[in-house]
Amino acid sequence: REAGDMTHLFSIIVLLLKINATKSCSGVSLKTQELYLLVFVTRYLDLFQSYISLYNSCMKFIFIVSSGCIIGYMRKHKVVSQTYDAEQDTFRVAFLVWPSFLLAAVINQKLSVMEILWTFSIYLESVAILPQLVLLQRTKNVDNLTSNYVFLLGSYRGLYLLNWIYRCLTEEGYRQWIVWISGLLQTAIYCDFFYYYLKSWRKNERLSLPS
């Protein structure tokens, strides 16, 4: 789990570094970033309500603030915002948001606003990368930082899968089917990307996804 959290954190650092160092967000999907902000805000509504650990609270805070930062850069920064590929980033996010919300309203652990929003965030996260993957496929010569970002972001849920297997074996009564199935789907969506990422990495070439 720690490795998963760190990979998640590194993915964000890599993305912020890329944007800040190159003053460019080309190849980065604003739609995916906005979906992630929605995921974090709806999942971490309990930030001020239930305290688990300083670590958890800090990470929640970092995830919300950093995705807000990335969106701010892409929308408002006078240099960076001009490098955003708006014509290419055309995924219709309503097709991800509404089904996730309806599914969360039907399949959840408890019928309450907080619980439905939390479940919604789990479902939405599992598909939030799709606009980014579509944009990558449309971009020729994806830069290394962007492909590293997607690789780290994809690895994070994969590492959580290992954590869940471990917890399931060692903790009595530890079951969370909604999170497990969503996490499996989330990782499966990256399989194709992982294949081409590792292939280009081995050949020491820039990543380009077949269209």
Partner: peptide, 10 residues
Amino acid sequence: DEPAEAKDEL
């Protein structure tokens, strides 16, 4: 009442 499950992961 109790939350549906302890949400101790991120």
